[in-house]
Simulated assay, not measured.
Amino acid sequence: KSIFAAVPLEGNLSGLTFSGCGDLNPLQNDIPHNVIKEGSKVLVNGAVGYVLGDGTRSSAEKPNLMLSADMNQMDPYYLGGFKTSQGGEVYDTVAIPIPVLSEEIYNNLLVTDDMIDLPVADIKGRHLPLDNTDYGKMWTAHDLRPRYSSDRCSGCDACTVENVCPTNAFRDKKINLAYCFGCGMCSHYCRNDAFDMNTGSVDLHINDEDVTIPIILRQSDRLRANKLSLKLKQMIEKREFIL
């Protein structure tokens, strides 16, 4: 059991889970923090907020932020609960503007998914990486939402997808796309293949062997991230968000 999995992992390199939106993550586009600093204005779940400082266990290699915004102004689409095998978590959606004030800031914006390293670790202990991959392998050409075919659903007495879906997006043979997180669990756990979704797989070299591991869970939602980024862009253009 782990907060990094929606259900207990089976082990033996049978599945990979990850988080992070890759090159859409503003922290990957502002290294070191030239623009994103204490006091910077941001959008937190659609509400205007501010960077208070670095977050818990933040480091130059693995930065994260502490943010503040008025919850009453937030859009409920952008935040919610996410079930894991160790209990409930909360997901939030954040968009941060990066004004291009220098050539260095501009060059930092040119990072792409394949340039961002992602270490692969055993869920037990999370010690030294078993191997390394990148966010290009996580996101490139993969589906952001599943396609559900009701004619392939056999109406199991105990629906596996209802049980494993981290956001309760599938109920009574219907998928609620407003709740869907695009995690990919449905496509891997439906016994009748009623869900079609390409989440990809990763080729790794572990213990002197080449292995291919399917990506069974994404704990970040690139679709929501894209939507909030576009909303921020529109607010800036309309002068509703002043830098």
Rank of each mutant, 00 (worst) to 15 (best):
R224L: 15
L128M: 12
S85E: 11
V202T: 07
V211G: 06
R171G: 02
H188W: 15
C186I: 14
D134N: 15
E237Q: 09
V120H: 03
P146Q: 03
M71C: 11
T17C: 11
I242K: 03
N192R: 12
S68P: 02
C156V: 10
M74D: 04
S154I: 15
N132D: 05
T56F: 15
N207C: 11
L24N: 06
N207H: 11
F4S: 06
C180R: 07
V48Y: 00
T140V: 15
H188V: 11
L9Q: 13
A141K: 08
G53N: 08
S149F: 15
N72K: 12
C156R: 04
Y106H: 01
D70Y: 10
V35L: 13
C165I: 12
G55L: 10
Y189T: 15
S40M: 13
F241Y: 01
A194P: 05
T84M: 00
N108M: 00
T93R: 05
T140D: 14
F18G: 00
K174M: 14
P8E: 03
D143Q: 04
S220C: 07
Y78A: 08
Y135E: 06
G87R: 02
L130K: 08
I98W: 00
K124F: 14
I175A: 07
C153H: 11
I242W: 02
K37R: 11
S102D: 02
D172G: 02
Y91N: 01
Y179I: 09
M71V: 15
R171S: 12
S68M: 15
P97T: 08
L13P: 01
V202Y: 05
V90L: 15
D172A: 12
W139E: 03
K124E: 15
C156N: 07
L130Y: 09
G184M: 10
D23R: 00
D114W: 06
V35N: 06
V161D: 04
F181S: 01
M66H: 08
L110Q: 12
A6W: 01
P32T: 00
N107R: 05
D208P: 04
Y78F: 15
S19Q: 04
D172T: 09
K174R: 09
N25T: 07
T167Y: 02
M185Q: 14
A121S: 12
P129Y: 06
A47D: 05
G155E: 03
R191H: 14
G20Y: 05
K62T: 14
L228A: 00
V94T: 07
A121K: 11
C159H: 03
S187Y: 04
T112L: 13
H142A: 12
T56H: 13
I98L: 15
I116E: 01
L43V: 00
K238C: 07
S68H: 05
R222H: 06
G39L: 10
F4N: 07
K174N: 11
F170Q: 00
N64Y: 09
T212Y: 01
N107S: 10
G20M: 09
V111T: 00
V120T: 06
D221H: 05
Q234G: 03
A158S: 13
T112G: 07
M138G: 05
G88R: 01
A169R: 01
T160C: 06
D172K: 10
D208F: 13
V90K: 04
G22F: 06
S58M: 10
R218E: 06
L128C: 05
S19G: 10
P119D: 09
E38M: 14
H188A: 09
C180E: 10
S58T: 13
D196I: 14
S19A: 11
E104F: 07
N168E: 10
L52I: 14
L228N: 00
N25H: 08
D30M: 01
I36Q: 04
